[in-house]
Design a protein around this nucleic acid. Sequence first.
RNA 1: GCGAGUGUGCUGGAAUAGGCAGACAGGCACGUUUGAGGGGCGUGUGUCCAUGACGUACGAGUUCAAGUCUCGUCACUCGCACCA
Length: 803
Amino acid sequence: MINYDYSAIEKKWQKIWDDNDTFAAKNDYSLPKFYGLVEFPYPSGQGLHVGHPRSYTAIDIVCRKKRLQGYNVLYPMGWDAFGLPTENFAIKNHIHPSIVTENNIANFKRQLKSLGFSFDWNREVNTTDPSYYKWTQWIFLQLFKKGLAYKSQMAVNWCTSCKCVLANEEVVNGVCERCGSEVVQKEKSQWMLKITDYAEKLLDGLEDVDFIERVKTQQRNWIGRSYGTQVTFSTNIGDTFEIFTTRADTLFGATYMVMSPEHPLLEKWADKIENYDEVLAYKVEAAKKSDFERTELSKDKSGVKLSGVTAINPVNNTEIPIFISDYVLISYGTGAIMAVPAHDTRDWDFAKKFGLPIIEVVKGGEDVQKAAYTDCNDGVLVNSDFLNGLSVEDAKKKIQEWLCEKGLGFVKTNYKLRDWVFSRQRYWGEPIPMVYCEKCGYVPLDESELPLMLPNVDSYEPTDNGESPLAKITDWVNTTCPHCHGPAKRETDTMPQWAGSSWYFLRYCDPHNDKELASKEALEYWSPIDWYNGGMEHTTLHLLYSRFWHKFLYDIGVVPTAEPYAKRTSHGMILGENGEKMSKSRGNVVNPDEIIDNYGADTMRVYEMFIGDFEKAAPWSQSSIKGSKRFLDKVWGLFDIISDGEGYRKELETEFHRTIKKVTEDIEGLKMNTAIAALMSLYNTIQATGKITRDEFKTFIILLNPFAPHITEELWTMAGFDGMLNETKWPTYDEAKCIDATVEIVVQINGKIRARLNVDANISAPDAIALAKSEEAIVAEISGKNIVKELYVPKKLVNIVVK
RNA sequence: GCGAGUGUGCUGGAAUAGGCAGACAGGCACGUUUGAGGGGCGUGUGUCCAUGACGUACGAGUUCAAGUCUCGUCACUCGCACCA
């Protein structure tokens, strides 16, 4: 028996695949295609950890199977290489970020190749390559031309450690998503992308795609559509203001109003508000609090009542007080609300604290003086004049009609989604191709000027004054206006990391094109991505952003499909052995290099797929991996028991057909663990017979090939089969042959098992029951008893109910 | 607080148009192989008062039959979090 030298075998096949471009996608657009995609990594200095390959292996398996099934497969890989860690490392070690990136990529690439993924390396992309970011900048210019990129002075999230602005999506629990430092609000002029214009399309598009439900739900929540009414309230000083409500039916229960402390009308009313000092003081206090603190303190409501200015409820002309309170957000709706304490917990809390009246307008709950009755869709309107007696639903319609008629309101849809803050005050990102001219304002660079290269500098430390490091390079900053040719300055902020990753999957279709981001033909052929797997953490970041860009590109005729991804799945994390998230600080990181050295890439792949439910987090186990190695050792041993004989042996035929079916279907359903289990079972059956026919061996190693590509190629060659395994056909199964001729059924008396029988699989119900009743053990059970019911579940059981 | 999901041996996990719970692995125990190793092979491994009974977080229910369906409780995970 030849030794299973996984190291030599894996290196050998990786070289053969490399030398022959075995897995290069073909440019023959007449073939059926399959585009499988995994999120391209950020090439960090730490290198790959064992979490990365879980996703890559799963889709690699799908792609390898699809190739054997005759598809022209595109399975590409690239580098999302702009970003802060590289820049920080570069600053610390005085190495240029581009060199750091190059080194990291080389290491990542070596690691990925050592795992035997069937990536098409000819299509590798790198977001920091000017020939790539030329098109990132080009897309930005298109967004600008369509009015979807604009500059705005506003309060933004500022990470105190990165010294950089963050998008709302990048702030998690009030801290920076990347570094965990405190995020404060800072007034700054920023480039913004109008993702809100696409809120509707981003929501509706979810109906047409095959994304796992969690992803859809999360995106829906993030976009946060709500249907309601915008209502105009007048005031005692003549001015009017608007509020948004989803519960216009409760208008008669509005006993006070609340404005956000940042509401612009407050300034306008400065001389009318008698306690304006107090208002200003409150505003300053609110501004000091971070988002996190505002949330934390949510239970304890605070606020200031405006004196001198009151509101008038349009439905009954009642004069009601106006408060300012930080529980109303300036960024949502109109920044002002009507408060209905009887039917909203927040308003109720506030009303209790400030001693405001609570008027019940929907009957059906408990005493509204004791708690707000919010879940009141079944209630009936009371204390509401012309709405009395109506259901909530009818009352909403009626009041909306009434408001519309009087010109006091209109139906409105609101979204939680906000525009995307697109500027970053850092060096290592795509320069924004805009020029500021005193005369012409912001002027886009001409497309012929692209790419606008990131200038080489000696110092790229972030600054405390909120300016990009690029601002210091005066000879780069100072330029001429593309419009009037007068003196002008370049935009010095760069794009966020999410820019390059928002369209990379398009570039893979035609990565070397220097005329367009990708040719029409290539995009027509490869779009949409058939299967995209990635992390849940990107659901409201990369996944949402890239859908937005794609929809925009679709609208301007650049891409052929409205949605980029036909199918989206998500993998669970690989945790450390102690069940905690792998991290350097916890000291529980497992390096794939080490696993490959000790067990081989095939074992690593099989283990990561066998570890458990693909969608769930799973702890790494150093001892469990041995099981996968043992399995491959045993498979290797099959070579020694290959014997003569054609086809599948009679006694194994059913199991072979069933296993082919199971593995084929499980791969499509990402149930890699049960596919491997089925192969292990099949092995156990074969092993018990002491031999394997050539045809059986062939089928077995083809089925195992997507999981363990190196060992199976080697065995294929050793067995002398034609060509290479990756050029063969995926085995097929016959549904009819998946069923045994005879099956064991159980016989139950009152649901308790009392006997087992071997019967013909197609036995009729009466025959099965008769047979069961003739069984010795059953006769004893039923004699002298009254049979109430008899039933036969085909291929499963007979149950006799007696009294 | 809201939303989504999960709960099965010592461990990872199988089993859903309701039909033999614990597949397949890991671990452990015992045996074996006189190549002492992170080796191979074999056997066993849910619980108990053991010809049988009980058992899928807990408590009820529907059913001939429930891990699977219904109601309630508890625990955990993830997401959102004053979104009017």
